[in-house]
């Protein structure tokens, strides 16, 4: 069974975001970039599928030269090969999805795994788009996955509960936290991963469908009224919630 795992490089979750001089993107200066946290579950699941059924795991990212770092992490965890589609901007989910679909057509995997969302643009868009472009089924927010013969059974999180979904292979899966416990790469494997080759694929010629006009930091003005724990002060909080915020 051949697996394609698609991962992305994102700013560390604790990053303080500032706006670039262009007014429409994040200023990357001083920002630490990491492997998208949900993608760790996707890589781990890919490795487990290979361990059970044989085959290969290819890890793919779309991004700039520095994104090769996260491919090295995937290689150290056990991915057989790694590939990059060079696209520094990576802002248009349709172009990203088209580029990934092109690679998928050329290597014909049985399963394509993603993290449930990339925590930079948070669009939840690329996995479903890739599935639609390929004419495949997809299951998103997957917290449990069983593959048997050519059928897939998965549990996905929905509001207030879970859905059990069935599909056939080939299939696109987007991994949610809880799917597995990602392994830590071992030091010798980290060293070996440094010298492995990373192949390069061209960016899709698809045309941009959405443009960013500007980027702003949110207006986080809060009332910041601070109280103590005395009865009188709690009475005042309840009064304000009732009369000022009109929430109770």
């Amino acid at each position: 069974m051949n697996v394609l795992v698609c991962i992305s490089q994102v700013p560390d979750t604790t990053t303080k975001i500032t706006v670039s001089p262009d007014g429409k993107s994040m200023n990357p200066q001083g920002v630490k970039f990491i492997l998208n946290p949900y993608d760790e579950f996707a890589i781990e699941e890919g490795l487990r599928i290979r361990e059970k059924f044989g085959g290969t795991v290819t890890t793919l990212t779309v991004g700039g030269e520095s994104a090769k770092e996260i491919l090295r992490t995937a290689l150290a965890m056990g991915s057989d090969t790694a590939a990059i589609i060079k696209d520094e901007e990576r802002q248009d989910s349709y172009i990203v999805a088209s580029s990934i679909a092109d690679v998928a057509r050329s290597i014909s995997p049985d399963v394509i795994l993603f993290g449930r969302q990339s925590i930079d643009f948070d669009s939840f868009a690329v996995p479903s788009m890739v599935a639609e472009l390929l004419g495949w089924p997809n299951i998103s927010m997957v917290s449990s996955l069983t593959i048997e013969d050519h059928s897939v059974t998965a549990e996905r999180d929905i509001e207030g509960g879970k859905e059990t979904i069935e599909a056939t292979l080939p299939c696109v899966i987007a991994a949610q936290k809880g799917l597995n416990d990602p392994r830590y790469p071992k030091l010798p494997d980290i060293m070996k991963a440094k010298s492995k080759t990373i192949s390069e694929h061209p960016k899709s010629s698809a045309v941009r469908r959405v443009n960013v006009l500007d980027m702003k930091l949110p207006d986080t003005k809060r009332l910041n009224k601070i109280f103590g724990e005395s009865d009188q002060e709690l009475d005042e909080v309840v009064r304000l919630l009732h009369e000022e915020a009109k929430i109770i």
Partner: peptide
């Protein structure tokens, strides 16, 4: 229609315009 949407987990907002 244009839209405003949060990115970076709400740490920034972008205004986006469809080209379609």
């Amino acid at each position: 229609v244009e839209a405003v949407r949060p990115i970076y987990a709400g740490k920034a907002l972008i205004r986006v315009k469809p080209e379609t």
